[in-house]
Simulated scan of single mutants.
Amino acid sequence: MTLLPSSQHVCAMALSCLDDSDNRLQSFDLSDADWRELEVKNRRLHHLRMDCCSAAVVLKRSSRGTKFFAHRIAGPCTSADESEEHRHLKMMAVEIARSSGWQAATEVGGTTPTGEPWRADVLAVKGNAKVAIEIQWSGQTNAETLRRQEQYRLSGIRGLWLLRQPGFPIVHDLPAACIGGSLADGFQALIPAHERMLARHRRLPESWRQALPMDAFLRAAFERRLGFLTPLEAVGENATIVVETAIADC
């Protein structure tokens, strides 16, 4: 994901777009026949547009057959293309969220109460609860991750991060896991034991506090079965605590 100077990030390739009635279309929700029909209709009417910048849309497939929407003409809304891994993880998150009873869509945008724009890779909604799933395949500073997490908090959204780059903060306000594995072998969610985890540790699941299949991790998140342990608790070290008691009249 590439950040624009305005701090609003957009995708040159997307799994969703808007039609002329502002309905959101998800590429992975369409059958092959529906996709071909939509492609023909869009060539004739040019009725589809990118949600990020309202640019005209062209329908494409990746080398692995993944359907996606792209800008018809390169313009001011330019960024590096998302990787196939990024798109796959977004689709996985939507599928698992929906199967767990949430409404979910990709590339949903909004603004904070102060007017700062944000765009979530996946936004899942269930009643009053909102969760943004961010897949950060490219490198990003911890300060930028925390800044964007604060945008979600201010917007009443809980952010969950899947980061390819390890070494991120282990704090309650930043639920996160490192992405291990690959498209070919399947993805893992790697739970760090400390903030000094390195990229080479991705190949060594035993180096992490916990390693589990990514789909199992996401399902636990949407079923509210994830809990937070401090780094001290996670590595099983001893700690000194003080317990204070008092008598209260009832």
Results as ranks from 00 to 15, higher is better:
residue 128 N to V: 11
residue 128 N to Y: 10
residue 130 K to S: 15
residue 131 V to N: 07
residue 131 V to D: 07
residue 131 V to A: 06
residue 132 A to T: 14
residue 133 I to R: 04
residue 134 E to N: 09
residue 134 E to A: 08
residue 136 Q to S: 08
residue 137 W to Q: 12
residue 137 W to N: 13
residue 143 A to M: 03
residue 143 A to H: 04
residue 144 E to P: 06
residue 144 E to M: 14
residue 144 E to S: 14
residue 145 T to P: 00
residue 145 T to C: 09
residue 147 R to L: 12
residue 148 R to Q: 06
residue 148 R to Y: 06
residue 149 Q to L: 05
residue 149 Q to V: 05
residue 152 Y to F: 12
residue 153 R to Q: 07
residue 154 L to S: 07
residue 154 L to H: 08
residue 155 S to P: 03
residue 156 G to N: 07
residue 160 L to S: 05
residue 161 W to R: 02
residue 162 L to D: 03
residue 164 R to I: 04
residue 165 Q to A: 06
residue 167 G to V: 00
residue 167 G to L: 00
residue 168 F to L: 10
residue 174 L to M: 13
residue 175 P to A: 02
residue 176 A to E: 01
residue 178 C to Q: 04
residue 179 I to P: 00
residue 179 I to G: 00
residue 180 G to I: 01
residue 180 G to F: 05
residue 181 G to R: 10
residue 182 S to W: 11
residue 183 L to G: 11
residue 184 A to N: 13
residue 186 G to E: 08
residue 186 G to A: 07
residue 188 Q to T: 08
residue 189 A to N: 03
residue 189 A to I: 01
residue 190 L to W: 01
residue 191 I to F: 13
residue 193 A to P: 02
residue 194 H to T: 09
residue 194 H to N: 15
residue 195 E to L: 02
residue 195 E to P: 02
residue 196 R to M: 04
residue 196 R to H: 10
residue 196 R to K: 13
residue 197 M to S: 09
residue 198 L to I: 07
residue 201 H to M: 08
residue 201 H to V: 00
residue 201 H to S: 09
residue 201 H to Q: 09
residue 205 P to D: 09
residue 205 P to G: 13
residue 206 E to I: 14
residue 206 E to C: 12
residue 207 S to H: 14
residue 207 S to I: 00
residue 208 W to K: 14
residue 208 W to P: 07
residue 209 R to W: 13
residue 209 R to A: 15
residue 210 Q to G: 09
residue 210 Q to F: 11
residue 210 Q to I: 08
residue 211 A to V: 14
residue 211 A to P: 06
residue 211 A to Y: 11
residue 213 P to E: 12
residue 216 A to N: 14
residue 218 L to M: 15
residue 218 L to E: 11
